[in-house]
Design a protein around this nucleic acid. Sequence first.
DNA 1: CGCATGCTTGACTGAACTCAAAGTCCGTGG
DNA 2: CCACGGACTTTGAGTTCAGTCAAGCATGCG
Lengths: 252, 252
Amino acid sequence: MMDVQALPSVARWQPAGSQPALKLENDERWSTFEEILNLLRFDGHVHQANDTGLFRRRRLKAGQTAFCMGQPFDGLYVVRLGALKTAMTHLDGAEHVLAFPMKGDLLGFDGVCKNKYLSEVTALTDCDLIKIPSADLFSPGRACNDIERMAYWAISREIVQEQTTYALSHAAKSEARVARFLRIQSERFKAMGYSPNRFTLPMTRRDIGNHLNVTLETVSRAFSALDHLGIIAVERREINILSLDALRQFEK
Amino acid sequence: MMDVQALPSVARWQPAGSQPALKLENDERWSTFEEILNLLRFDGHVHQANDTGLFRRRRLKAGQTAFCMGQPFDGLYVVRLGALKTAMTHLDGAEHVLAFPMKGDLLGFDGVCKNKYLSEVTALTDCDLIKIPSADLFSPGRACNDIERMAYWAISREIVQEQTTYALSHAAKSEARVARFLRIQSERFKAMGYSPNRFTLPMTRRDIGNHLNVTLETVSRAFSALDHLGIIAVERREINILSLDALRQFEK
DNA sequence: CGCATGCTTGACTGAACTCAAAGTCCGTGG
DNA sequence: CCACGGACTTTGAGTTCAGTCAAGCATGCG
């Protein structure tokens, strides 16, 4: 059924409770503007004048990088399938995980400013991205319409998510951060149409810890603690949220 | 000379070494597109076709809020003068300081997504903002040109700054974070045309601590430590960086 | 099978938080 | 003018939480 059977286990990752991989017959490597709007869950209205354009897709295997820091900017990407991580590498080599983009998220907007990407994007699982070339965003000849509006909207959403994430790393004890992280993951899976209660984390404890600014041991201990309390059930990367309310209580 | 003499001290705030307030005769409350480009330090090229439009300014006294969480989105703002803080308030009432916007920074883009602002902006000093109404950004009739391009560029820069800030709050001991904070402040003052070595912080220790995710006491102790080491000279909010290199060493 | 990677758990240590007191600056009002 | 109050800052002492180091287990891959 799934066309990635032969790949390493992490690549076979799918959210628990997801529909059985809708046939993937559409192996033609192009996406319509409408598909992008659906992926982004854009709720504004468009003029339907852009139906003509097609956008090229890009496949990534788990572990591959979509783009690196310093690479020249060539467009934005929308995640069609899979999970990734974005990170910044400091001068001293230390890495900071910024986010874990998944289906429907937008990538690469940090590249517009200096005309090169300023973060690094790595696929955690096999991925399928859709590219929106910079030409489609900036060419002055093109009608200033749907793509523009959608891009603004999506970028704004990314900013909000980033702010929220940043706020997430704030204050609170380490266990509370982990609880908040799980709650937010749950909401994201729900927004993508998957089960908010049962899901499989695509990232390692180390990545989570880096993201939340705690050590991987602390993440592990927090998971165990929440498990012992009966709030969640953890088995490696399989998460089962038993009481979302209790989880929320833990965030304070 | 300065037209704010009668205001409380925090309102009289000016970066040390700034030019003596260039006459402020331009009390007409409108700004040109060119002024916005200069403020943002936009380095792309524009078509000069937008010279006609004028943008309304908005004055704020220290302590006033530019906009609150939940307020309907009505446009972006560029800081013309002064310093502010942006913050998110959590459900439980806890506040997280996201950034300290100053001259040339862009505000309000988090409002596009849900059509309402999702952060709260407070003036730390008397401020002068320039408003870019949402109509100028989205009206389909308008030529898709300079304003669009500038907005993209500026937003991307904001994202980069936010990512950097987020990464700043990462890892490292509290003293290192404070050192990094000072270094970044120094660079921002330099970018605004002020002295990178001598400046006055517009925000309290509490705000800095909140922003860096440490307590105000820890910030104070870090300042004292850096002072005793001869790396900086601190006197309340007056900062004098004696050795930028030593400060950088401290970030690791 | 053996190795590499990732995860869990324990014991110890140290850095940052909390609580507390005192000092400084500033604006206000007597 | 000076006294007062409030906001901000500094510094100290005790405590707690999370990092470090280390060992052991599970999984998956060659």
